[in-house]
Design a protein around this nucleic acid. Sequence first.
DNA 1: TTCATTAATTAACTTTTGTTAATTCAGACT
DNA 2: AGTCTGAATTAACAAAAGTTAATTAATGAA
Lengths: 200, 200
Amino acid sequence: MLEENKVNHYLDFFDLAPEELMSLFSLAKEKVLKEGDVYVKEGSTTGKLAYIKSGLIRCFLLKENGEETTVLLRWEDQFFTAYDTVLFNQASRFTYQAMEHTVLLEADYQVFMDFLNKNSKFSKAKDYFLISMLAEMMERVESFVLLNPEERYLRLLKDKPNIVQRCPDKYIATLLGITPVSLSRIRKRLTSSSFAVPKK
Amino acid sequence: MLEENKVNHYLDFFDLAPEELMSLFSLAKEKVLKEGDVYVKEGSTTGKLAYIKSGLIRCFLLKENGEETTVLLRWEDQFFTAYDTVLFNQASRFTYQAMEHTVLLEADYQVFMDFLNKNSKFSKAKDYFLISMLAEMMERVESFVLLNPEERYLRLLKDKPNIVQRCPDKYIATLLGITPVSLSRIRKRLTSSSFAVPKK
DNA sequence: TTCATTAATTAACTTTTGTTAATTCAGACT
DNA sequence: AGTCTGAATTAACAAAAGTTAATTAATGAA
């Protein structure tokens, strides 16, 4: 289960009674991943909804040339799904891998949603995953049309300063839509312009 | 109202009875925009959900230097909202403008959602806007991390071939995260490599 | 501690994009 | 037809990013 302060946050946020929140959690089971473990493999069709209690998950595409492109990074207190399966109803083109020791609460997406649909008390909770994910993706799209690669890197540092210590640069680079070589140059430019670039 | 074939599509898609679908439409009213009309202005706090019966809407940010960056294009049969207001609960940073004669069905977002929440028959319809918007934004994010500007342009042409005739290049360019000059060069490169670039 | 492996940086070079400005093109209006 | 306006193209140059490969740094296992 969750810690006291997070439970209270969700009670408030979803506007639920404690028993109601408990009934939601009863649908989920805990899953522990160690660094490097694959949670969802390319080709998988398991429609899971997962909440990250702690840790870091990387969603990436393995290209024909053997290179990996990071599409998403999800960390503690965020939800995620293999969105190919849940949104597009197809086998996952992506692999979801733990970048560090990670603890998930996972539930079957459809079972969870059906449960939420049975009682309108849950309507707020039901929207939460979709809305928060959509909000984040909109911000991500904005960052691509409004910012250049250097600015996107700075924004990521602002959003999640310790990501640099938790995830290799080569994965961060492709997440930003650039190559690792280019990210290295950006870091150098920032350093030489007296910006405090986080050490690895 | 909608044409017969679209009504049938939504009855099927949302799994509703005709009367139920009608009750949804009764919440919306039609709004006609002519080319250049502003639908939502920067600073607005009206939380509307709109369905585009026909036409094309551009969502853009006006930057300090006077330049406009297109963040979204939405066309016929798509939903949209001033997402700043609905997702982030803040005044819109963006302006939504009709690029051509456009007919909308609009409803107050909160009134509409509250109505849908009252009856679980509507749960599928309720998710539809969020899921389809999220799916599209995920594809957009993918296009930025997996494709270069030329490939993003080609993908847009594939998704919506007539967009080139309906929207000036300078707006398409910023939507792709590049400058109008760069898009012009991409079009030239494609032409000279015997690709059939659509005429304006 | 040493060795092997992988990540990150640097270098050299090519390609693309950004920027600014000039030129050409197309549509709207008188 | 002629003029005006803004879009699109082109040009010229600077800046940044991609690519490939070499070098250095960091990490982990024996």
